[in-house]
Nucleic acid binder design. Structure first.
Lengths: 357, 357
DNA sequence: CTGAAAGCGCTTACAG
DNA sequence: CTGAAAGCGCTTACAG
């Protein structure tokens, strides 16, 4: 028996120099060249503690030397799960999508995971089926749900049902906090309100996003609550629901600014709508910030491109994406103890000033 | 023999009702249930012509019935190539990236392919190695090269060397046209020049992108050539090289607008820099379009958000992305006969007017 | 701490 | 036009 073992070893060693150069090294090459079984190599790949330290070091040195990297397709097939993270989103602003992607990629860099993008239309009837096919067919390791897709409970339920792990990004806890990144939009809006109050504004108006969006609801609530804490109540005519789009912002601003008594300040649920306010003000000859203060939400590139540059609530989207992805690729059971959240804060630029009176 | 065959058939049929429900159907299930070999099922999956029509139809009906979809991981492992398309880009505008992604996804929809994103930094020394690792490790089916990454010949050479198919998107043919989508930036810039000339402008200035970018070079050349065709030569002081960024646009505009003799019109290599021109003009009290006409390039969302809205050259980025992806997933040898290209065209808005004199 | 056998769900190479 | 055998590069389940 011992003899046989020895001969096998020898054979392995002699093969060492003959590994074909054209083809990338496989787990078999590594096992053969380092004189261990492929199972041991597999344990090393998967960071199993059940490997002696010197064995591990010897094998890892060889891996580096030959530039070995395990094949994600083979691993995926055996694991019955790929090394792909999906990002599911429903047509938010381009900059927001891109920031979220960059953030996720920050977390995936150096790991074996890659990011697969999956935009969808949450208003189309078959969209949940589409995500389901995507997840099951690709055997995704997990999926990041970006607002507004993240706000759809039916989508999360479907993923739960098919056993796909996910992280939901939302303005408040909609789910088990271990699968959430919370963006605290309420606080961001409150900071905008406090800022306008501190400048002395009392006749303030609000252009909100669609009430069906949790983010819009949270920002509105945060803003109104902060005003009420200082004893100011917004009359209904000062609150206009719009659609998070530039055009809807224009329409809302026309209602607010072209009447007889206009507010001295406007807070909008995102920067796109703030750009709409700018357009109406410019056209009507209303000077920002002298006659009208404006605060947006997003701190998109648009905020600094506009003139005067727009004071806006920064969302730290890249951090959000990074956190969401990091949660998904964390080894099981090693979940973070604290709740994942990212805090917004106000970026002051040139669009606000104390009211004239 | 016949008897044995029959008994096997029978056995297969009786197994039909006992396929475990918990687990997704595999090629073996389909083969067994439809009484053909798995190789035949494989032929059907891969659209091989070597299958009798009725066999194909019978098997396809079964696939639909049980909701069978082949496992991309298993296929990838056997093919030694995944069903992933990579998109490689170097920090262009968010909207541009997103449009490109949407376009690529348009082409991939309904196919077995998915899109994996890979932003990179072409100025960092190791970036080509990074793309190489990405491509080889994931065994990508192909990769879409977006400007400016697409303009780097060393990157294309590396991909060629490792045998990775790619499509380069660029303003002109940098490569074998079968692996290019050409965006004809020269023509777009020429259209901008013709438009300004048609309004009567003669003292025109140009803010270009970095000369190391082919897109910037092409747009500049297209613009200058079009002016020369009408007998107008731009003096060097009227051409300022900037960095494609808002801030660099501001700096360039300050040189052009705050001197004694300012031009009556400015063409910028992208919309970001046009926004910089707006800022300087606004601050200096120069009325656009009355005292200054401005034309941008990109037709980004910014163009309609600015006030007055910006006349700009539309790039049809989504079409570009769709074309690039379609080329990559086309069956071999079935390459298009005509050269893939996407034409830009001018979108006229409110930022231009005949000069005052 | 280590390994031999079987299997993940497909395709290739060969045979008929 | 169809199929049986071997293999892609890993992991799981089991044994020691």
């Amino acid at each position: 028996m011992v003899c046989k073992d020895m001969s096998l070893r020898k054979k392995a060693d002699s093969d060492a120099t003959t590994r074909p150069q054209g083809r990338a090294a496989t787990i078999n090459d590594i096992a053969r060249l380092s004189g261990v079984s492929k199972k041991t190599v597999s344990r090393i790949i998967n960071n199993s503690p059940l490997v002696r330290k010197d064995t591990r070091e010897k094998v890892e040195a060889l891996m580096r030397e030959v530039g070995y990297a395990p094949d994600p397709l083979a691993r995926g097939l055996a694991f019955r799960r790929s090394f792909l993270i999906g990002m599911v989103y429903d047509n938010p602003t381009a900059q927001y999508v891109v920031d979220m992607q960059y953030g996720a990629l920050d977390a995936l860099r150096g790991s074996s995971f890659e990011l697969v993008v999956h935009p969808c239309d949450t208003r189309s009837p078959g969209y949940i089926e589409g995500v389901k096919r995507f997840v099951q067919q690709q055997k995704l390791h997990g999926v990041i749900l970006v607002p507004r897709a993240s706000e759809d409970q039916a989508l999360a339920d479907m993923l739960e049902e098919i056993g796909c792990r996910y992280t939901r990004i939302a303005s408040l806890a909609l789910d088990d906090t271990s699968q959430m990144v919370i963006t605290h939009d309420r606080d961001g809006a409150a900071e905008a309100a406090d800022y306008l109050l501190s400048l002395g504004h009392r006749d303030i108006a609000l252009i909100t996003g669609p009430s069906a969006y949790r983010s819009a609801h949270e920002r509105t609530a945060g803003f109104i609550d902060a005003l009420e804490r200082r004893g100011i109540e917004l009359p209904p005519a000062r609150i206009i629901e719009a659609g998070y789009t530039f055009e809807s912002g224009v329409a809302a601003a026309e209602k607010l600014l072209l009447g007889k008594q206009r507010p001295t300040a406007i807070f909008t649920g995102n920067d796109e709508m703030a750009a709409g306010v700018y357009k109406v003000a410019m056209r009507a000859g209303i000077n920002i910030p002298r006659e009208l203060s404006v605060v947006g939400y997003d701190d998109s590139p648009l905020a600094s491109r506009l003139w005067p540059s727009l004071t806006s609530v920064r969302r730290n989207t890249r951090d959000t994406g990074r956190t969401a992805a990091a949660m998904l690729i964390q080894p099981e059971g090693q979940a973070a103890l604290q709740i994942a959240s990212v805090r917004p804060h106000l970026i002051v630029r040139d669009s606000c000033q104390p009211p004239l009176d």
